[in-house]
Nucleic acid binder design. Structure first.
Length: 256
DNA sequence: AAGGGTGACAACCGCTGCACC
DNA sequence: AGGTGCAGCGGTTGTCACCCT
C-alpha cells in the first residue's frame, strides 16, 4: 500500500507549537470544525501537516482537556485498566474524563510504570492476548458504543440558532457536525462574538469543565461527504484564512 | 554559578483499520 | 478484489524545566 507522505518535507514546520499557531488552529477548528485534517492546515494558514494539527488539537487545544496532576482515583483507574486492557491507551483514556491517550501514556511511562513494577502483576502485559496487535477492532466497537450519547453536546452556532431535529446516532453525529461547519459562514463580527460567548458558556470553564465524549469534535465521519460542500460553501482563500475583525482578540483570553 | 542527570510532557513517526472508488 | 486516502493508534524521540552535586 502506497501512502502519500504525511508531511511535505519542504516548508512544513515541526516541533513545538507557537501561541500564534495555536490560535490559528483553535480559531479554525472552533469555527469550521475538523472536516478534513489533511486539508485543514492549508485553509487555516498553518505550515503544519494535518497529522500534527490533529494531534495538537486532540491533545492540547480541545475543550475540556483536564491538565495537571492526576488524582489518586485517576491513577488507580489507569493501573487497573492497564492491567486488564494492556497498552490500549485510547481505551484507558476514554474512561478518564478530560485525559488524552497521549497524556495517560506519558503518565504511565513516567510515573506509574515504576510503581507498577514494584508490585508486578501476572498480567503486567495484560490484555495483549485479548485482542489483535493493536486492538483496534474491539476499540472501534467500544468507541461507537460510547459515542452514543443520550445528551449530545451543544456545538457552536448550530446550538444557538436552529436546533436540529434529533436523528439516529450516525446521522445525528454527521448532521451535528455539518451544522458546525455550515454555520461557519462568515456572518458578522457580532456573530463571532456571540459564538465565543456561547462557546464558553456551553463548555463552562473552557479548560476545567468535565470532558465531553470524543465525538464532540470528531468530525472525521463527515469528511468525505462534506468536503465538497465545504469547498463550495466557504471561499477559503488562497491558502490563507482570515477572520473577522476581533476574532483573534476573542482568543487572546485563552491561556494558550 | 555551572553542568550533568532526570523526569515530565509535547510532538513525531510508522503502522493499522476503515471507507471509498 | 485491490488500490488509495484518511483518521486514529501506540511507540518512540525531542525538548525543557528542575534538581542535585
Amino acid at each position: 500500500m502506497v501512502r502519500t507522505p504525511c508531511c511535505d518535507k519542504s516548508g512544513l514546520r515541526k516541533g513545538t507549537w507557537t501561541p500564534e499557531e495555536d490560535r490559528k488552529l483553535m480559531a479554525y477548528v472552533t469555527r469550521y470544525g475538523c472536516w478534513n485534517w489533511r486539508q485543514l492546515p492549508k485553509y487555516a494558514g498553518l505550515a503544519r501537516c494535518g497529522k500534527s494539527c490533529r494531534l495538537r488539537w486532540m491533545n492540547y487545544l480541545r475543550p475540556n482537556i483536564k491538565r495537571g496532576n492526576y488524582s489518586k482515583e485517576e491513577e488507580d483507574t489507569i493501573i487497573r485498566l492497564h492491567d486488564s486492557l494492556g497498552n490500549r491507551w485510547s481505551a484507558i483514556a476514554a474512561q478518564l474524563p478530560g485525559r488524552t491517550d497521549n497524556e495517560v501514556k506519558n503518565h504511565w511511562h513516567t510515573t506509574l510504570k515504576k510503581r507498577f513494577k514494584q508490585k508486578p502483576s501476572s498480567t503486567a502485559d495484560g490484555g495483549k492476548d485479548q485482542t489483535n496487535k493493536r486492538g483496534m477492532i474491539r476499540e472501534k466497537e467500544e468507541t461507537k458504543l460510547n459515542n452514543i450519547s443520550p445528551n449530545p453536546p451543544l456545538i457552536l452556532e448550530s446550538s444557538l440558532s436552529s436546533p436540529q431535529p434529533a436523528s439516529s446516532d450516525q446521522n445525528s453525529a454527521i448532521s451535528t457536525d455539518n451544522n458546525t461547519v455550515v454555520s461557519g459562514k462568515l456572518d458578522s463580527v457580532s456573530d463571532d462574538n456571540a459564538l465565543f460567548e456561547a462557546y464558553e458558556a456551553d463548555s463552562g470553564s473552557f479548560w476545567t469543565e468535565p470532558f465531553f465524549p470524543d465525538s464532540y469534535y470528531m468530525c472525521s465521519d463527515m469528511s468525505v461527504p462534506f468536503e465538497a460542500e465545504a469547498e463550495a460553501e466557504f471561499p477559503l482563500l488562497n491558502g490563507e484564512i482570515t477572520y473577522p475583525f476581533g476574532f483573534y482578540d476573542q482568543l487572546d483570553g485563552f491561556n494558550l
